[in-house]
């Protein structure tokens, strides 16, 4: 087991974060051209904290996570610039073997569809204990016992009896719990959950979200929750980073976002949540489609869909504007949005 040696000094400005993504760029080189899918993303995460990364499909939220994990297929993916600092050390500069040691042990990840993410031909106990056997040097028996403990931890009933069952023998919610148990096997400090509840029933979604919240608190992990569903993050997340076309368009505490969105895209997302008190009226939607990242629009990538778009939006790319209290918005009219004077 190689420990991660912290060599670099704390970043300027005091506190060093557990995980910090700094000005990350990712592009995909395909036969049809280059798609710039991540364009200068920065976010950070501290122990015991939940960061929700929100956005539509193709906004780059999953790609950022895969870049952190180091499981992007390169090629076609390429990371031209940026840093991913874990405990101050740049993961992108690490040799692959050292990077591999970080995966699963320091930073773990769970995926959307647990049925396809679990290997169909191995029993769940085998899969949960795999890292313990091969990386922590535990005996087969000890590793299986630990797997039972982990299955208890994620509240799978009759864990010991089910250790030899295969993934297809579990219900969707239980499968996602198996996935979580597997991700927790090496006591990671960071857990990335990539749309963990999208494939599940609504009632099961709430249970899984609660479980993730509890585990994050009990194990003092940092949790990155990737989702396109604003509804699921309200109770769990501390901060929200809203992504659009490979950029973070708004980054704020969860309360502030719900009360006063500082970016038209966030506002659009909030308006498109169905409400009980608006029964009978047509549900608001964001018109249009996300941009083609091979040929992104000029200026602000959101301007073709923005109901407030002005002339400047079509020509100038908005910079991330600091609105105080750790809040940023990449809109030319962020201040006006907060004042409520933007029309």
């Amino acid at each position: 087991m190689t420990d991660i040696h912290v060599s670099s000094p704390p970043t300027v400005g005091g506190g060093r974060h557990l995980l910090e993504v700094k000005d990350l760029f990712v592009e995909f080189h395909t036969r049809d051209g280059v798609a710039r899918v991540i364009n200068g993303v920065s976010y950070h995460l501290d122990p015991g904290e939940t960061l929700a990364v929100l956005g539509e499909s193709g906004s780059g939220k999953s790609v950022t996570a895969q870049a952190i994990m180091g499981i992007l297929d390169m090629p076609p993916a390429k990371i031209p610039s940026g840093q991913i600092l874990y405990k101050g050390e740049n993961l992108l500069a690490m040799p692959e073997e050292k990077r591999r040691q970080v995966r699963g042990k320091e930073i773990s990840m769970i995926f959307q569809d647990a049925l396809s993410a679990l290997n169909p031909v191995f029993p769940v106990g085998w899969q949960i204990s795999e890292t313990l056997r091969t990386r922590a040097g535990m005996s087969k028996k000890d590793a299986l016992n630990r797997a039972v403990e982990l299955m208890d931890l994620v509240k799978i009933p009759a864990a010991r009896a089910r250790i030899r069952d295969y993934p297809h023998q579990f219900s969707g919610g239980m499968r996602q719990r198996v996935m979580i148990a597997m991700a927790l096997a090496m006591d990671p400090k960071v857990l990335i959950a990539d749309e963990p509840t999208t494939a599940l029933d609504v009632t099961v979604q709430a249970q899984i979200m609660d479980l993730l919240g509890d585990l994050r608190r009990d194990l003092n992990m940092g949790l990155i929750l990737i989702t396109h569903d604003l509804g699921v993050v309200a109770d769990v997340a501390d901060r929200i980073a809203v992504m659009y076309a490979g950029r973070i368009v708004e980054h704020a505490d969860v309360r502030n976002v719900y009360k006063h969105p500082a970016h038209p895209y966030t506002e659009g997302l909030l308006d498109s949540i169905p409400r009980l008190d608006s029964k009978g009226t047509e549900l608001a939607t964001i018109k249009g489609l996300p941009p083609n990242l091979m040929r992104p629009p000029t200026g602000c990538a959101f301007h073709p869909r923005c109901k407030y778009a002005k002339a400047v939006c079509t020509t100038e790319t908005p910079l991330s504007l600091d609105l105080g209290h750790g809040r940023t918005s990449a809109c030319h009219f962020a201040k006006e949005m907060l004042d409520g004077t933007l029309r």
């Binding site: 994990m69 499981i71 970080v102 995966r103 773990s108 995926f111 993410a117 795999e130 597997m182």
Partner: peptide, 12 residues
Amino acid sequence: ADFVRTARSKGM
């Protein structure tokens, strides 16, 4: 397959 991505993210 997705399970290959999982195995890699387990650090195998």
